Computed example of a mutant assay.
Amino acid sequence: MMKSRPALIVLAAGTGSRFGAAGHKLTQRLGASSVLGTTLRHAIASHLPVIVVTTDALAEAACRHVASRDCVVVPAVGTPSPHALGMGYSIAAGVAARPDASGWLVLPGDMPMVQTATMLAVASALEHHPVAYAQHRGRRGHPVGFAAELYSELVLLSGDEGARRLVARYPAHGVEVDDAGVLIDVDTEADLEKLRVAHAARA
C-alpha cells in the first residue's frame, strides 16, 4: 500500500481588503499567470495532494488549476454563518477535506514566490516533528506544516486566528531554506509591483 503523503492546503478565501485595485489580489496578473495561479503551479509541481480553500467569488479562478473536487468552497468573511469564519475556519475545512493525509501544509495563496523545493522540505520535516515551518535567514515564514497527530485540533479551528495557538503549543521545527519567497506575500498594490519585479528577475 502506498504511504499517504502530506496534503498542501492553499488558502484563497480571504477578502484581500488592503488591496486597493479593481479585482481581488489573487487574480492580479503575475508573469504569464496570476498571483494565485503561480502559487498553485509551484504547489502542483510538488506532486503532493493540493487542496484550495476558496470562496464562490474565486472558485472559478482556482478550478482552472486544480480539479473541482480539490476546491473547497467556504462562505466569504462577512457572510452570515453559524461558524466563526476566517483563516482558522479555512484551515479546518482544508484539513477535513483530506483526513487521511499524513499531515497538512498551509500556504497562503498570495505567496507565489515560495518554491516547490521549500514545500517538499517542510513536508519531509513532518516525519520527525509535529509542527514545521519554512524559515529564511532565521525569519519564520510559510508554509507551515502539521503532522497527522494534530488532526482533531486542526479541524476545530475557527475564526481568523489561524493555527498560531497550535504552533505555540507544540515543538515547532524551523526548516532553513534558501528561499526568500517564504517571507513575501501580497497585501497592497505596492507589494504586487515589487513582486512583479522580483518574479521577472527570477524568471
Rank of each mutant, 00 (worst) to 15 (best):
M2E: 15
P6L: 05
L8Y: 15
A13K: 06
G14P: 05
G14H: 11
G16Y: 04
G16N: 01
F19E: 01
A22L: 08
Q28I: 04
L36E: 05
L40V: 05
A45N: 07
A45G: 06
H47I: 04
P49G: 13
V50N: 01
V52W: 11
D56F: 13
E60G: 09
A61E: 15
A62W: 04
R64W: 14
R64I: 07
H65P: 03
A67R: 14
D70Q: 15
V73F: 00
G78K: 13
S81T: 12
S81N: 13
L85N: 08
L85E: 03
I91G: 12
A93M: 09
A93K: 11
P99W: 14
D100W: 07
G103C: 03
W104C: 05
W104D: 13
L105F: 09
P108K: 07
P112V: 04
V114P: 01
T116M: 11
T116I: 09
A117Q: 07
A121M: 08
S124D: 11
S124L: 11
Q135E: 15
G138T: 05
R139T: 14
G145Y: 08
A148V: 09
Y151T: 02
E153A: 08
L154V: 05
L157P: 08
G159N: 08
L166V: 14
A168M: 06
G174Q: 09
V175S: 02
V177P: 03
V177E: 03
D178A: 13
A180F: 08
V182N: 02
V182K: 00
V182Y: 01
L183K: 06
D185G: 13
V186L: 03
E193K: 00
E193T: 04
K194I: 00
K194D: 00
H199G: 01
A200Q: 10
A201Y: 03
